[in-house]
Amino acid sequence: MADSKSVKMTDSAAKSGAAAGQAAVGEKTGAAAVQTAGAEKTGAVPTLEVKNLSISFGGLKAVDGFNVVIEKGQLYGLIGPNGAGKTTVFNLLTGVYKPDTGVILLDGKNITGKKTIEINQEGIARTFQNIRLFKDLSVLDNVKAGLHNHHKYSTLEGILRLPSFYKVEKEMNERAMELLSVFDLDKECDYKASNLPYGKQRKLEIARALATDPKLLLLDEPAAGMNPNETAELMETIRFVREKFDMTILLIEHDMKLVAGICERLTVLNFGQVLTQGETSEVLNDRRVITAYLGE
């Protein structure tokens, strides 16, 4: 069933290079079908379902027929060698790029082709591979910026300092401090974001993403540049976030210790295509994965 659906999508999209995409789909829908069947067994709508997602830049197929199903509450890993298209997948999911073909369903709702801010409001929040904080704003204001769409008052109310301003600002401060204390950043709330040490900047970025109250959190190499201690702490934080906020998390990571430690399922990308996907332990022992990415 899934097979016919995804092929239909490819047809309707009718973009250049779609034919090549179809050929690739033929090989991989096997894996996707297994995934979808799994979802149907539990009966719940998966938090994220991606079918046959493709994009090319010029002649390069950066992502080619990408499929994934992420159940609610899952900690899902996306791994693969450099240039495999992992961050491109994130950019497609968050609307930075528009896919050539494919469908993205968030909680069963089609969000394909929507703008970044709309997708955020639908419930996908992300962090970035190279940290993107609001560097001249305070730590507190970084999180409060994340609360922008959840605690509102108009610009005029803000300028005139009407009662609603004080009320909403108070709510925002409380909510932001709550989030900061989860990440042990509450003492640094007055610091400029750029003055935080590296590890805390990573945490602040996660806190800011969580402030938008997402259904799905995308973490792009959260452990990049961290020492083993910081990585171990980060693993705890990610686990904690999942428990505390009942969050579904998709993360890109090169640190196999972290991936093996916290991810339940994995998808391996290679040259824009899904190499394999499944339970973490199975995937990490897969011959093809070892050859293409992990090494002997």
Binding site: T94, V96, T116, I117, N120, Q121, A125, R126, F128, R132, L133, F134, K135, D136, L137, D141, K144, A145, G146, H148, N149, H151, K152, Y153, T155, G158, I159, F165, V168, E169, M172, R208, A209, A211, T212
Partner: peptide, 22 residues
């Protein structure tokens, strides 16, 4: 105010501001 924060977040990092729905 909320608006000023949004404006400054755009100044500091447009892509990140967009990603949090501003």
């Amino acid at each position: 105010s909320r608006t000023g924060r949004a404006i400054m977040s755009i100044r500091d990092n447009r892509i990140a501001a967009e990603s949090i729905g501003i």
